[in-house]
């Protein structure tokens, strides 16, 4: 006789990976030449990270992975993220 399906709880297909530690989350990804990015934001909420000051340049992992500064960000991308509609320092 067929098992009752409607109205009964079913065992989820995704659970075996999740309960054995085999599931992969974003933090588990390892890709060739993968690098980590840290973003320094203004320390106080109403202030802005000043373009006149840039953090000490961290040692790049390789020559092909330089550290980025606000002055090197694409303007359009920076303005799209700006909560003050264009009045952010460029």
């Amino acid at each position: 006789m067929a098992e009752k399906l409607l109205g009964s709880a079913i065992r989820r297909r995704e659970d075996p990976a999740l309960i054995t530690g085999r599931a992969k989350y974003t933090d588990d990804l390892k890709l060739p030449n993968m690098a980590y990015v840290a973003i320094l934001r203004a320390v106080l909420t109403p202030t802005r990270a000043s373009p006149a000051w840039t953090p000490p340049r961290p040692k790049p992992l390789t020559e092909s992975w330089p550290s980025l500064r606000p002055s090197t960000w694409p303007k359009a991308a920076f303005q799209a993220k700006c909560p003050w509609a264009g009045s952010c320092p460029t």
Binding site: T20, G21, R22, A23, K24, Y25, D27, D28
Partner: peptide, 8 residues
């Protein structure tokens, strides 16, 4: 050890 089942 690549045991990523333990999460942060």
């Amino acid at each position: 050890l690549d045991l990523t089942g333990t999460n942060v």
